[in-house]
């Protein structure tokens, strides 16, 4: 099955990329844009077929390597 790990900058961590994108979108005439934040999605193909175990494994991977817990938070979705 597949696990999708979404890694996002934590609240309070400056995200200049998000700010720049928000600025650019406003420049295109899109109105009403609040805060824009940029993260990443990591798609993992896993041999595990039990969704709960696959999720737990992906969470462990996120804590150990995929996310830097000082500045990022993550969530895992399995399909």
């Amino acid at each position: 099955m597949k696990a999708y790990v979404t890694v996002m900058p934590k609240n309070g961590v400056l995200d200049p990329q998000g700010k720049a994108i928000g600025h650019a979108l406003s420049g295109h005439g899109f109105a009403g844009i609040g805060e824009v934040r940029v993260g990443k999605v990591i798609e993992l193909e896993l041999a595990e077929i039990d969704p709960a175990k696959a999720k737990a494994a992906a969470e462990e991977m996120a804590r150990k390597l995929l996310a830097n817990m000082v500045i990022e938070s993550f969530k895992v979705e399995v399909r």
């Binding site: 400056l14 200049p16 990329q17 720049a20 830097n68 000082v70 500045i71």
Partner: peptide, 11 residues
């Protein structure tokens, strides 16, 4: 060492 090194504020 503690902390993190982010992208430069100016990008």
């Amino acid at each position: 060492l503690p902390g993190a090194l982010l992208k430069n504020a100016s990008l």
